[in-house]
Amino acid sequence: MKRISLIKLLAPACLLALAGCSVLAGGDRQSITIYAPQVRVQADPGWPQVSWQLAIAKPSAARLIDSPRINVRPTPGELEVYRGATWAQPATDILEDTLLRGFEDSGKIDAVARIATGIRSDYKLTTDLRRFESDYRGGEVPAATIELNAKLIHSLDQRVVAARTFVVAEPAASAEISSVAAAFETALNKTSSELIGWTLLSGQRDAAQLRSGGK
């Protein structure tokens, strides 16, 4: 495997803030490239038009995942980060922003907002981001891998309407970090599209049952 541009997570320098992660190589300060995934989820014509409101909770994640550092897994038991590269914001913020924009742009829902806004929502979407990493999986080229668990909760009685784990692994064109970042855009688009469609369908099914007295 090509090991250039990797830093082990256990190295003290990588536990510092962004400025502290500009490591010195041969006496020269290394520049940091900031990657900001630009994802625009296209609405699926098969998604239902819904009349209920949705609140999106801040995604939860382990501390190593909820970070601007770009994680890479060269072997199954080893986690490192790319040297000289970072996300523009933590992975959970990237996911939250993408989902909110995806729901809004879909035109399929009356209202959607972050849960922190305090809107009176009919349903709440919670997510646990379990993986957001470049995974070599024993090969020469990594795959941008996103794994998250989602729960759709009925706000009135806190009943779990539906739960599902989403996993997407998008192979990068090469081992270069720019290619890995591009693969993350595609993986995030796929994950978000699947999650948005699942949320709309699950919520609409539950809302129809409530209207008919099925629950």
Rank of each mutant, 00 (worst) to 15 (best):
E96T: 04
T117F: 11
A175M: 06
S192T: 15
L64K: 04
I65L: 12
G77N: 13
I70G: 02
I196W: 02
P171T: 11
A57W: 00
F166H: 09
R83Y: 05
H154W: 12
P74I: 00
V161A: 09
E80R: 13
F184V: 04
E194S: 06
E170Q: 15
N189G: 05
A144E: 07
N71C: 03
V160H: 02
P59C: 07
P74K: 01
A113F: 06
A162L: 03
T186M: 02
V167S: 14
T86L: 10
A172V: 11
L148I: 08
E80F: 12
R120D: 15
E194C: 01
K151L: 12
P59Q: 11
V72R: 07
L99D: 02
G138N: 12
Q158F: 03
V167D: 10
S67E: 07
A187P: 02
P142A: 13
A181I: 02
K108W: 04
P142E: 06
A91Y: 03
L125G: 09
S179P: 01
K151Y: 02
E133T: 11
K108P: 01
T145R: 12
D93V: 10
G77M: 10
D105V: 00
A62V: 08
V180P: 02
D128Y: 04
S155R: 12
S193D: 05
G107D: 07
L148K: 05
A182I: 04
L64W: 05
K58C: 01
L156E: 14
A162I: 05
A173V: 08
V161W: 08
T191N: 03
S60N: 06
S121A: 15
T86G: 00
D128I: 04
V141F: 10
E185P: 01
S106T: 08
E147I: 12
L99H: 05
V112A: 09
E176Y: 13
A62M: 08
K151D: 13
Y123H: 12
I109H: 03
A143G: 13
L79F: 09
E80A: 14
G84S: 10
S193H: 06
L79V: 14
L156T: 13
E170C: 01
K124C: 13
T75W: 03
R164A: 02
Q89V: 14
A116I: 12
G77E: 12
A116T: 15
N149K: 13
I196A: 07
D66H: 06
A113D: 15
T126S: 15
E104G: 01
N189A: 09
V167M: 07
T165D: 10
D110R: 15
E147A: 14
L195W: 03
T86Q: 11
G77P: 00
L125T: 11
R120A: 15
I119M: 14
T145C: 03
A91W: 03
F132Y: 15
D135G: 01
F103W: 07
Y136V: 09
R101Y: 04
P68H: 00
R114K: 14
Y136E: 09
L79K: 00
I146Q: 06
L79E: 10
